[in-house]
């Protein structure tokens, strides 16, 4: 009995270790009478950098929220590292349009609170994440007094402080000055080199010209193309 249990455990570990970071299978999402996603299937490989593109309202953010487990698909299923996305939350980093931080707390206070949710009690990985995004961990100012760019950086730090092997980023360069955007792009390139899988939504392709591995194009809720270079109709 004990051996069987151990064997099953080993198989589970093997499955999740070799499973793709993201498997989206026939996912549709209907809001009232509007289909935001139509039968989308997608598989991402480890350690690659994907850029999700499409016109406004194409369903990019909806797809990302479904992958993150924040929204339920009307049809189809999503697996993260081979398991249900709600079971793989610790292996996922997500940055949304909104910064997902408290205005009344400082940057480090925010990270400390969120770190507790991941069972992290040490300040070291949090300070490291702050430095990696170009913020001073000693900054005592409350987030409400941060500039938009600083909030974006803090939001990125919140998404990566636990070193997740899969990172989902929804427009991380919006409201960020060009120099900071280049720094963030370089940070993402380093993460990709270290084996992190990144799925990113942006309209600023120039920043990712030499970094991204693949471009995915969504149109009217359908995945219409996957290409190693920006699509011609972009």
């Amino acid at each position: 009995m004990r051996q069987t249990h151990q064997a099953r455990k080993d198989t589970d570990v093997t499955l999740s270790t070799h499973a793709p970071p993201v498997q989206v299978q026939n996912v549709s999402k209907i809001f009232g009478r509007t289909a935001a996603l139509r039968n989308v299937s997608l598989e991402l490989e480890r350690g690659r950098f994907y850029v999700l593109r499409g016109e406004n309202g194409a369903g990019k953010s909806t797809l990302m929220r479904i992958i993150a487990g924040l929204s339920h698909p009307t049809d189809g299923q999503v697996k993260i590292f081979g398991v249900n996305n709600r079971e793989a939350l610790a292996r996922l980093g997500y940055m949304a349009h909104a910064p997902l931080v408290y205005d009344e707390l400082s940057g480090m206070e925010n990270l400390r609170f969120f770190a507790r949710l991941y069972g992290i009690t040490s300040d070291a990985p949090l300070e490291d994440a702050m430095r990696r995004v170009g913020l001073d961990p000693g900054l005592t100012r409350r987030v409400g007094q941060y500039s938009q760019g600083m909030r974006q950086r803090l939001s990125l730090a919140r998404a990566i402080f636990h070193s997740p092997p899969l990172v989902l980023l929804d427009e991380p360069f919006s409201n960020v000055d060009p120099e900071s955007a280049s720094q963030i792009a370089q940070l993402l390139a380093n993460m990709r080199s270290a084996g992190t899988t990144i799925l990113l939504i942006t309209h600023q392709l120039g920043l990712l010209a030499n970094i991204a591995d693949e471009f995915l194009f969504l149109s009217a809720g359908k995945l219409v193309s996957r290409s190693p270079a920006p699509p011609v109709h972009a």
């Binding site: 487990g69 939350l89 909104a98 997902l100 931080v101 919140r158």
Partner: peptide
Amino acid sequence: ARELRNGVLDAYRISPA
């Protein structure tokens, strides 16, 4: 309401807590 400001509730929902 303070959990909705800046979408913080979503940060909690995607955590393993």
